[in-house]
Design a protein around this nucleic acid. Structure first.
Length: 567
DNA sequence: CTAGCGTCA
DNA sequence: CGACTGACGCTAG
């Protein structure tokens, strides 16, 4: 490429922008390490419109390397080269020099990419690579570019409330322990709870108190504290302290530290999860709590009220605000992994649960059946528990673990699992099929042929083998759901551009896409998003048929913490 | 049960 | 002293 030297600065910028834009949209194959970063840099530097980068096409060796071996992705070009070398030649000792030589020379980029392309083709991953992963790259760059607006003042106010409450809990804890100690230290807490107060000895079923996995010490985990909370006021105070601290350090101070120029800019990575899911970091937006934290403030202001307590609820998502004249629009695939299990297992009674257009929420329905209450009065916490239980069983939970979830005996939990699996016999058939396939081929694949190599499936170690079996099953379902969400991001993005709608994708929460939409376009965007995500053509223009329809629910709001369902 | 990331000691 | 690890806790299914 040629760049003229004697040109006015403004013309030069324009020239470069034109030049690079032409290059990016041309059919020429472009190999770029960390393509997402390059796109982000170019958007920022040339102030490009996000929509203009959606059809940029590049190939990124690191993404290819990840797709080939998602559990051990290469982090540098050197590692990409080494990976190819190792796969092609078993005896790599004498080739060590050649490897280092190649690594030093980025001019080998094209050759390396060609090798990668062949490998992708041989492994039947090329289509996924070109049409899903690389198409997603500009979308992620766009998400990183515009970021999310957060109201810092609201965060600061939340921080103040938390700080006050933490101080009160601390002094209460010191009183009940008899002395000051570091509440955040598990070691010190262990001493106070067990060596000084001997709470474990007072606990009726002390055998069942958990221990730390490594040193087999007495654990101070939530499950233990819950069991001890009726014996002494301290455990309850520690539990509250931890909740408050977590909220303050991670979701108030942590978020505040990530705000730059009034907005929150996370980094989005599609090569850090082996299942194909996206991750976000700095901050991890995907882990901002959904449920508000209830705080009981002792009301010292109104002594007349006696021991009445004022309760404030702090919602970590509340400070996330749509820009002026815009609203958030969230589109959520309803129980996508459960539906995919129905698809894969072809279990008739499970298919029946999802067939038809009905707007019922499966987890609400199941909760209402199990708890014997009308669907309308199912609490969100109960629904959430049902969801956990269903997924736990799907992925092979043991009776002991399930028993702690449900707070029942292990025997009851065992009965629960077997009755669930009896009701949906296709589930076990599917799990066995996955495991057999994995044993035979050494890997399993998702609906879009994404693969995961699981060598431990043949391990002589029982724990490792069992874990591998659960991973194999989980990968097929979770990975397929990730595939579908990625397709949705790509197709919705394309459609919004084509219709000239100015809706920008801000957040992906695995099965949910959050857009920022101009108020007057909310209705049109809702229509487009819902149509695309529920369309039978979502999967490769209908080439892949699902046994169950996908259903999407939409909610809209000015703040991420106050979204309301929207038909 | 499976995926992640952030905080703290 | 800074890098690393384990335990914990938040998310998503």
């Amino acid at each position: 490429m040629m760049f003229p030297v004697n040109m006015e600065e403004q013309d030069y910028t324009t020239y470069c922008r034109e030049m690079l834009t032409q290059l990016m949209t041309s059919k020429v194959s472009k190999v770029c390490l960390d393509a997402q970063e390059l796109i982000l840099t170019m958007i920022s530097h040339f102030s490009l419109d996000i929509t203009s980068v959606y059809n940029w096409s590049m190939v990124d060796p690191k993404v290819a390397g990840w797709l080939l071996n998602p559990d051990h992705p290469p982090n540098t070009f050197t590692e990409v080269v080494k990976m190819l070398w190792k796969d092609n030649h078993q005896e790599c000792d004498q080739d060590a020099d050649a490897t280092t030589l190649l690594c030093q020379d980025l001019s080998q980029l094209l050759d390396v990419m060609e090798l990668l392309r062949r490998r992708l083709m041989d492994c039947d991953l090329l289509d996924l690579y070109l049409n899903v992963e690389m198409k997603l790259t500009p979308i992620l760059a766009g998400m990183e570019y515009h970021g999310i607006c957060v109201d810092p003042q609201r965060l600061i106010n939340m921080g103040d409330i938390l700080k006050k409450r933490i101080g009160m809990v601390e002094s209460d804890a010191y009183k009940s322990a008899g002395h000051r100690f570091l509440l955040s230290s598990h070691v010190q807490l262990r001493t106070v709870l067990f060596d000084e107060l001997h709470l474990d000895e007072k606990c009726e079923n002390r055998q069942k108190l958990a221990r730390t996995s490594v040193n087999n010490l007495k654990s101070t985990s939530e499950s233990v504290l819950v069991k001890l909370q009726h014996l002494h006021p301290l455990p309850k105070l520690v539990l509250e302290y931890r909740k408050l601290e977590k909220m303050k350090s991670t979701y108030v101070d942590g978020i505040l530290a990530c705000i730059k120029e009034g907005k929150l800019t996370a980094t989005w990575d599609h090569t850090s999860a082996a299942t194909g899911r996206l991750t976000s970091a700095n901050p991890n937006i995907q882990s901002v709590p959904k449920q508000p934290l209830e705080i009981t403030e002792a009301s010292n202001k109104q002594p007349a009220e006696g021991d009445k307590h004022e309760t404030t609820s702090l919602c970590a998502r509340e400070p996330y605000i749509a820009r002026e004249g815009c609203s958030f629009l969230a589109a959520d695939f309803q129980s996508i992994e459960f539906r995919l299990l129905a698809h894969f297992s072809k279990d008739p009674s499970l298919l029946k649960v999802f067939q038809g257009d009905d707007k019922k929420d499966v987890f609400v329905e199941l909760t209402s059946q199990w708890m014997n209450v009308p669907p309308g009065s199912v609490q969100t916490t109960d629904r959430e528990r049902t969801k956990r239980v269903v997924y736990s069983i799907m992925y092979g939970v043991g009776p002991e673990k399930l028993a702690t979830y449900l707070n029942v005996s292990a025997a009851e939990a065992k009965g629960f699992i077997s009755s669930f699996l009896r009701r949906f016999p296709g589930v076990s058939r599917f799990t066995h099929k996955c495991i057999e396939e994995c044993k035979a081929k050494g890997h399993v694949r998702t609906i879009l042929k994404r693969w995961r190599l699981i060598p431990n499936i043949k391990s002589p170690n029982f724990f490792l083998k069992s874990q591998a079996e659960r991973q194999a099953v989980n990968f097929v379902v979770q990975g397929s759901a990730a595939d579908i969400c990625k397709l949705a991001m790509i197709l919705v993005g394309k459609q919004l551009v084509e219709r000239g709608l100015r809706a920008r994708l801000l957040i992906q929460l695995h099965d949910e896409l959050v857009f920022e939409v101009a108020d007057e376009e909310v209705d049109s965007v809702r229509g487009v998003v819902k149509d695309i995500m529920q369309s039978d053509d979502l999967l490769c223009d209908g080439k892949i048929k699902l046994q169950v329809p996908l259903r999407v629910s939409i909610s809209v709001g000015k703040s991420w913490g106050r979204m309301t369902d929207s038909e």
